[in-house]
């Protein structure tokens, strides 16, 4: 059969025997189903529907705002309040070691750091006279020096005087 003739017959047959299609009832149900799906897509999902009462929502909003404020206003390492406290503490320490603080307009924190190291270096060790004598005797012994003790007075006072004389002689000699 010639191609054109076959095609003409095929088209005629298709005209008489079209593709199956839905009935009116099926078509109506079809449209309804599609529209239901579309409306379902438009409607907010159950998870996104506001489940909080307005008051609760306001409360949560306020709490969030407070949290934000706390985060923003949280004291940092260089905030004025902390610096004031630090100065006061340092001042108390210096007073305890009987040091005068002479702040000459320098940056407070730097000054305080310098004073820290100064105070530590100059701090007087609180030792008793007996301990000091023992240390000095040990030191003299190591140096091969035997203190010449004079008669009279307390043993302790005599020793200290001897040491003082030794020191002076050594420094001036």
């Amino acid at each position: 059969m010639h191609e054109e003739l076959f095609l003409a017959r095929l088209k005629r047959w298709l005209k008489k025997h079209p593709l199956l299609g839905p009935s009116q009832e099926q078509g109506a149900a079809f449209t309804e189903d599609v529209m239901r799906r579309i409306r379902a897509e438009q409607a907010p999902s159950p998870q996104t529907v506001p489940i909080f009462a307005p008051r609760l929502a306001w409360g949560m909003g306020l709490a969030a705002a407070c949290l934000l404020a706390v985060i923003i206003l949280k004291p940092g390492p260089t905030d004025p309040l902390k610096l004031t406290q630090a100065i006061e503490e340092e001042w108390n320490i210096l007073e305890a070691v009987e040091q005068e603080v002479d702040l000459d307009g320098g940056f407070l924190e730097d000054e305080l750091e310098q004073w820290d190291s100064l105070v530590l270096a100059e701090a007087v060790e609180d030792v008793s006279d007996e301990e000091e004598v023992e240390r000095l005797l040990d030191l003299l012994s190591e140096m091969g020096e035997e203190p010449a003790l004079e008669e009279g007075g307390s043993e302790l006072e005599d020793l200290l005087e001897e040491f003082r004389l030794l020191d002076e002689a050594e420094f001036t000699g």
Binding site: L19, L20, P22, G27, F30, T31, V34, Q42
Partner: peptide
Amino acid sequence: TGRYAELVSRYQAAAWQLAYGFVGNWEDAR
């Protein structure tokens, strides 16, 4: 949105038929 139903009504038969021509199964085509 409701007027989309009119578009669906106009083309639902064509759409269903075309899909049916391809897949050969009525339910799948729907």
